[in-house]
């Protein structure tokens, strides 16, 4: 046993544990469509008064592609998304247009034909789980808050919050880099910075699994960053549990310059890299919460509990003991 690194005492959650002890236990299978289908989750959020990027239109079948021009008429910028996509795949962000040509935010020029092909592929199921036929949704492009300009390379930084039975327990901000092709995906080389649940300030950052302090492209520090509207974000995240019923949920938020925090998507199988970004395991916090009766608790109480749960980290406990 001593041959292997000790992941137990920092309380790292592994895939098997996440699947077996959390997803299977707290996320009933029948609720998955609520988050896997972006149209349903958007609708659900709107009905419950939670902020989401405005939906411009849906392309449900090949025939609808001709409606596309009508949908984006008068819109300079917009986003194309597969309804059943995951991990940011198949998303096309258009930042500008000139007649039949569109320009993506990463600077690529896309012709009308190319865009139609992209939509055809999406409808055919290229980006959906298991290759099922899919739909394309066209929505508002987030004008992300300039506060993140110096720590992102193209793309939109997003904030991931893990919510356990309505309690926001861990969070990180994902910053796009040149090597992640403007996608805020850690897996592709994006930066992940852990956020202190109590303060909303980033504490630790990684690229892949290696710790770092500055953004690799811009050189600006990514640790010590204060996330604006932090408490609003925690409230939105907590309420996502109420509208979906999923006990172990990942909520992705973006910060729009004008509209504030918006729900980008929700995830019933949130990844584990958030632990690396925070240099903290999820299990101490989850074990703390599992021992409590959370049902019927109000949103502010849940948020307070999430902040409290942070103190369960072995490192925090040591620090408090020293103090």
């Amino acid at each position: 046993m001593s041959l292997l690194p000790d992941l137990k005492s920092p309380g790292v959650m592994g895939i098997n544990s996440r699947n077996g002890n959390y997803i299977m236990r707290y996320n009933p299978r029948r609720l998955f469509p609520l988050v896997d289908d972006k149209l349903i989750s958007k609708d659900l959020a709107v009905k419950n008064g939670l902020p989401v990027p405005e939906l411009y239109g849906v392309i449900r079948m090949l025939h609808d592609i001709r409606k596309f021009d009508q949908i984006v008429e008068g819109k300079e910028d917009f986003v194309l998304k597969p309804v059943h996509g995951s991990g940011g795949n198949g998303i096309m962000v258009i930042g500008g247009r000139s007649r039949d040509r569109y320009r993506t935010t990463s600077g690529k020029i896309v012709t009308r034909d190319e865009m139609a092909h992209h939509m055809e592929n999406t409808l055919g199921g290229q980006f959906s789980l298991g290759g099922q036929p899919d739909q394309v949704l066209v929505e508002y492009r987030v004008k992300f808050d300039p506060i993140f300009d110096h720590v992102s390379y193209l793309g939109v930084p997003d904030i991931r919050i893990i919510v356990f039975k309505g309690v926001p327990v861990m969070s990180m901000i994902r910053l796009p880099t040149r090597s992640s092709d403007g996608k805020a995906n850690l897996h592709m080389g994006g930066v992940g910075a852990g956020i202190d649940m109590r303060t909303g300030i980033t504490t630790n950052a990684v690229v892949g699994t290696s710790p770092m302090q500055e953004h690799p492209d811009t050189g600006s520090p990514v640790v010590g960053l204060k996330i604006p509207h932090w408490d609003v974000m925690l409230e939105i995240a907590s309420r996502c549990y109420e509208i979906t019923g999923l006990g172990y949920l990942g909520v992705d938020l973006v910060l729009d310059a004008a509209l504030g925090p918006l729900i980008l998507e929700m995830n019933a199988r949130p990844g584990l890299n958030i632990q690396i970004a925070n240099a903290a395991g999820l299990l101490p916090r989850l074990h703390f919460l599992e021992a409590l009766e959370l049902d019927g608790m109000s949103v502010p109480d849940r948020i307070a509990l999430g902040k409290e749960a942070t103190n369960r980290d072995p490192r925090e406990i040591t620090r408090m003991a020293v103090a």
Partner: peptide, 11 residues
């Protein structure tokens, strides 16, 4: 493989 993935976090 997770021992390698989370190596940085090991106690």
């Amino acid at each position: 493989t997770e021992y390698r993935r989370f190596k940085a976090m090991a106690a």
